[in-house]
Design a protein around this nucleic acid. Structure first.
Lengths: 246, 246
DNA sequence: CAGTGGTCTAGACCACTTC
DNA sequence: AAGTGGTCTAGACCACTGC
């Protein structure tokens, strides 16, 4: 019979959660090193005086979090330290600016409906001559341009976009609200501002900018590509992570 | 009685997984809009001809993924599109270089044991005069410097680091292997290379660099701070995400 | 072939919340 | 007060796999 760490910092209400926390703390503390074979389910059943389902629930979650590996007939083993994966929260630009305590303003710079070219195909996986909308917008924080947004939207995936007026509302929230998405990919780079970008952002040409490119798909169909350019000194992406968070 | 989408692209082996996929696809397709009250557990039990536990497992996972919200006495409801959160995989630099097909080389530039100053306190939440090690290393891809690593390690948290020779092995893998960590935070920025960094990376002064700063804690105690500087044209962080991935 | 984890059941009690 | 989700049980069958 094993004593549960009920005196832990935060009390876990459910039994399977306490079991999970207990095993997790043994792993994180180093008491159970990578490769260690943790007790079998039926042993934990006795130790915690509960049914196998309850133990299984805890172990299944630990396995999903990558802390343990489970093998039939062999048992469950503590994983090697996992490849570090950080959760990046991507906020709405409006919120970002307002959290800085600055007045937010949005401005549509350019809006063109056209057929896709080969260059578009590199941004979004669409065939040539696909109808699309190309948008260029600016997000202001006070009087400064906080971010430059360049976007193309696949009209085959989002026909409604053709009838939508993006001069008042920014395309990002509209897309998030109206279009389901199943998959996305980010690329984050540091690039030097070219003359055009420099003029828009009000920084010297060649200055460092943070560029975020995002492609979004829905059910295998490309939806939109966006390139956000931030002045390097005005923006940082922040990511927090912990080794196992359900 | 409801027909399961068994003809889906990828066959889900378990029943609760098929139920999960089925409900998820209804949400992603827009058939069940945000706010829609999904059938009660006992209704789904009938629809899928299974026990409540099985339905519950699927719904619990969907709730954990943020796709639905569950309320006692009211039911389960489709969530509003969640704030976009991307999973950033942080790879070992060695792997990164080798995946580019380039020979990897590591070089320790500087290693100093000293007491912390106020400047260190801004990087890592430690008090003044805490013993620490300061390291400066270079990671080469072929003949070019791929990344510059500047690190401090809290010797109160990692006393072993004082006796470790970092001239042969890079501190990151050593730390990952030897020190459990419970929490970390990244900040990703674009900065201009100063003269020193420019000389090391072999780029013009002022050129755009991608900087990743990471602080790591274990059980509330600060462990290490590292600042990685990549030449802007050589590196991009890539993150993929989907709205619900267990 | 024996024992592991993977999955599922039918039923139970409870806390909470809205009615 | 009634019905929801949250949790747990005791037992079952199965597939896989290392002995």
């Amino acid at each position: 019979m094993q004593t549960l760490s009920s005196g832990d910092s935060e009390q876990a209400s459910s039994l399977h959660q306490r079991i999970l926390d207990d095993i997790e703390s043994r792993i994180l503390s180093g008491e159970w090193q990578p490769g260690y074979r943790i007790p079998f389910e039926h042993e934990l059943t006795e130790q915690y005086s509960c049914s196998r389902m309850t133990v299984n629930k805890a172990l299944t979650q630990l396995a999903k979090a990558g802390m343990i590996e489970r093998k039939r007939r062999s048992g469950s083993f503590v994983s090697k330290p996992q490849s570090q994966a950080a959760v990046l929260e991507i906020h709405d630009i409006r919120d970002e600016v307002e959290q800085l305590g600055l007045p937010y303003r949005y401005e549509l710079q350019k809006s063109v409906s056209r057929k896709s070219t080969a260059a578009d195909g590199k941004k979004l996986e669409i065939e040539r001559n696909t109808p699309l909308i190309e948008l260029t917008c600016r997000h202001y924080a006070g009087k400064r341009v906080f971010a430059l947004e360049e976007r193309i939207i696949n009209l085959l995936a989002v026909p409604d976009a053709a009838q939508t007026d993006f001069s008042k509302q920014s395309p990002s929230p509209w897309l998030v609200a109206c279009v389901p998405w199943s998959n996305a990919q980010h690329a984050i780079r540091a690039v030097a501002a070219d003359d055009n970008v420099a003029a828009i952002l009000g920084i010297p040409a060649g200055a460092a900018c943070l560029v975020i490119e995002r492609q979004t798909w829905n059910a295998g169909q490309p939806v939109t590509y966006v390139r956000l350019t931030y002045s390097g000194d005005s923006h940082a992406l922040v990511a927090r992570f912990a080794p196992s968070q359900g």
